[in-house]
């Protein structure tokens, strides 16, 4: 028995091992050369694209003088007391409310549909196919496009924004939820089925407890993300802080624009903190189990 020590490996040993299992010593040189050439071609292509689209150091280091002016305006907050704080804050509240209502309803719609779209829940191909394609349509059209459509149906204002969030996010959440369901272990489902539970009860007890923390975590992230994107919905007229932002930008009130942006950042990080706390509490049970396993 030869010892497993690096200093006991001699040139003869390497030769013998190479003869026995050549593929353990990496790809042969033509494959490596092809890989290297491919990599080089990609680098050349990347650099060429930079030049085509003007992303050159020369261009980036000599900005338009107006950029500097804009930058200075951003940070001059001397008129702070004269700004329309009440309007701005109310619109910010509208935005958070739009995101909250939209995400909640989208999650509630996506939840049952996700089970219909999951392979391990519903082997019937037709229903799964139809559900998936519905999800595709809902999220394949961008939220802003949905907002424009709903504005022409229900008019300008937050309702159009909420409807846009519901439609596009029930598609996205449905896809994510159904994938989470497909990633679960089969064991618990089998266990509940073995006691003679009905198919719906099997999903309720064998699957839902496994996936619920994932669902909640994704829904919370979407709430945060929608608070940001509801800003964009406002830009096209679907209510909220985005409208205040674009109105001030058009009249070059850049100091207030910066103020609005700072408020959005604060709101989003507040939501992030709160949803983090909720998530920790929800998956807390698992952490306790891990600690117990560590102690064992």
């Amino acid at each position: 028995m030869r010892p497993v020590r690096l200093d006991a490996i001699l040139a003869d040993d390497i030769r013998a091992a190479k003869a026995e299992m050549p593929r353990a010593f990496g790809r042969p040189w033509p494959a490596r050369a092809a890989f290297g050439l491919g990599l080089a071609a990609a680098v050349v292509g990347l650099v060429a694209l930079h030049v085509v689209y003007g992303l050159t150091p020369e261009r980036l280091l000599s900005p338009d003088p107006r950029a500097w002016l804009l930058f200075v305006h951003f940070f001059d907050w001397s008129g702070f007391l004269t700004w329309e704080h009440r309007d701005i804050l109310r619109s910010l509240g509208d935005t958070v409310a739009m995101a909250f209502i939209g995400t909640t309803l989208a999650s509630l719609i996506a939840l049952p549909l996700a089970f219909l779209a999951a392979r391990n829940v519903l082997p019937a191909f037709v229903v799964r196919f139809m559900t998936r394609r519905t999800f595709d349509v809902a999220r394949g059209v961008d939220q802003v496009i949905w907002a424009l459509m709903f504005i022409s149906v229900v008019g300008l204002g937050p309702l159009a924004g909420i409807l846009a969030i519901i439609v596009s996010d029930s598609g996205t959440l449905g896809k994510l939820f159904s994938e989470a369901i497909e990633n679960t272990e089969r064991g618990p489902v089998e266990g509940v089925r073995s006691v003679g539970a009905s198919p719906v009860a099997v999903q309720r007890y064998g699957l839902l407890p496994e996936v619920l923390p994932v669902f909640v975590s994704q829904a919370l992230y979407f709430f945060e993300s929608n608070t940001r994107s509801a800003t964009v919905l406002g830009l096209v007229g679907a209510g909220g802080i985005g409208f205040e932002l674009i109105a001030r930008w058009q009249v070059m009130r850049f100091d207030e624009v910066a103020y609005v942006i700072v408020l959005i950042l604060i709101t989003v990080s507040l939501i992030d903190t709160i949803s983090g706390a909720i998530r920790r509490r929800l998956i807390g049970g698992r952490q306790e189990a891990d600690a117990a396993a560590q102690a064992a």
């Binding site: 030869r2 497993v4 020590r5 690096l6 091992a17 190479k18 299992m21 010593f25």
Partner: peptide, 9 residues
């Protein structure tokens, strides 16, 4: 190569 040979061993 020595590491690979060692692993095979």
């Amino acid at each position: 190569d020595a590491e690979r040979t060692m692993a095979l061993r």
